[in-house]
Every structure is written in C-alpha cells, then in structure tokens.
Amino acid sequence: MLGYIDKIREISKRLLDEGRVDMVVGFRKGSMPMMNEPSFIKNSGEVSKLVWDSNCGINLANYLTDRKEKIGVIAKGCDSRNIVTHILENKIKRDQLVIIGVPCKGMIDRRLITAMFDTEVREVNEKGDTVTVKGAGFEKKLKKSDILQDNCSKCIHRNPVLYDELAAPLVEEQKDIDRYAEVRRIEAMSPQEKWQYFEDLIAPCIRCYACRNACPLCYCPTCFVDESRPQWVGKSQDETDIRTFHFLRAYHCAGRCTDCGACERACPVGIKVRQFTSKLNKDCLDMFGWEAGVLPDQRPPLDTFKPADPGDFIK
C-alpha cells in the first residue's frame, strides 16, 4: 500500500493544478506510531504532505459533510461506500467530488499491537505484508494479516465502489469470509446472557461520544442525546442512559453502516461498539439483501416504505 502514495500525490497535484478541486482531503503523517491525521491540502505544492499506509483507518467521508468546496477525496472501499451514503443523504453533491479511489488491503489495529507489548511501542514500519514494531529494547516482525482491524479482516468491499481516479489497480476481494460469526455467537445467547454481555461491553463508556463523532453517518444538527425537549437521555453516568445511547446510535445506523470501524477506532476506552452495528448489518442483509453504500442510487431499506413491506401488523 505504501506504493500508492506517489500515485495519490500525482493525482492530487493534477487535480489542484487543473483547478478541478479546491482541496484534497487525505492523510498526513501522524506524530505517533500507527497514527495518521486526516488533513487537507489546498495547494499543489503541499502534496508531499499526503501519506498513505495501513494507518489510515479514519473514514474520510466524515470530513465531507455539508462542505461547499469542490473536493478531491481519497477513498478506500469503506470511505467510498460512505460517500455513496453521503450523496444519497444530501450531505455532499456528487459533482462536488473527485473521488480518488484507493484499493485497500486493510488497516492495522493499533490497539491490538499496543496491547501485545508491555512497554511503549515507539516505532512501527511496514514493508509489503510485514509490519515491524520497535520499542525500548525490542523489535518484532508481524504479519500484517494477523494484526488487521477486525472490520478490515472481514471486509468484502476493499475496492472503492465509486471513484473517478484510481490510485492503484483493484485488489482481489476477500472471499468466503464469515462476517457474522460473532453476531451469531451473541444471538445464540439467552436473554440474560445477552443482557449481561452488553452491560459488560459498555461498562467502560465515558460518554464522550467519540464513536458517534467518528462516524460519517452521525451528522444531525442536534443529536438526540443533546436534545433537551424532550430530554431522551440524562447526562450522568446512569447505565440506562448509556445503554439508550448505544442502542439508539446503532439503530440510527441500521441499513447505513458500512462497518468502516471508525467508531471502534475512535473509542478512547476500547469498547467494541461494532457489536451493535454488526447485528443490524446482518439483519439488513438477511431481511432485505442489503449492504449499505453499495448501490449509488438506492436508499437504504429502512428509509423506504411500501405497503407490501413484510409485516402483518400493517394490515
């Protein structure tokens, strides 16, 4: 994936020079290992700031919401699916965008790597499929496929679904992936077990809403958790309120979530918030044969109503 960067810079420079876009949204090198920072450049002289590696896990569709400029955006598979959703939901217009598609081979899980070592990880490099982790007094080589973010390891849409330029040839999609084994495991639990499972899952939540804010789907002017009339949820650490937040957030993403993993990546306390959305993704697939952001001109199933929709209660 490192090889992509030249092509990305070349395209970005061309787009800026030709005046086709006002800015290019991409990543710049972070100040920490395994961290890149979403950023923009408006000047073709700055294209060298743009980077691309296995630490670009943030979903860049999030940075397009309600922008008025013409934007060149670097988009891996999940980003492009969220861009599709953004276009459908009027968050940005298609003709504002030049999508620089990046076929993706997955992002590495920095939390997983951090947890593998007792002392601080100070440097991480990648070359091909090998990732080298260095710290005070240690160095270890890891296989990239072993340290992928969970969502990336299960991804079947690595190639962008919608793009104007391509930074590299398309990659082979993963096949025979069991994406919902974990969901099935939870589905099989008794109600009591499930309850306990989810209680434990969200116990560390500090209600910073990083999961919500990292998600490109969450763009309401006022989130329901911030509404005061009526006040749907309280502001304290009350467990019912926390639970309500997580459940409702997930439901608001039903049929729209691309499993980009931004929520989980952003959580400062490491909650596996995708456990909620995965279940709804699975249900949407099972019930409506639907995957979010794949069809550029079709609204998600829960956004439409037909009298013929399944559900005897309608009659």
């Binding site: 920072e37 979403p38 950023s39 923009f40 943030i58 999030n62 940075y63 910073c208 809403y209 990083a210 919500r212 804010n213 990292a214 952003a266 400062p268």
Partner: peptide, 9 residues
C-alpha cells in the same frame, strides 16, 4: 481543527 471530530476525549 480539520481532523477534529469533536469527540471530547
């Protein structure tokens, strides 16, 4: 501020 997602972390 560009990258910030206002999460408050």
């Amino acid at each position: 501020s560009f990258a910030c997602i206002n999460c408050g972390t």
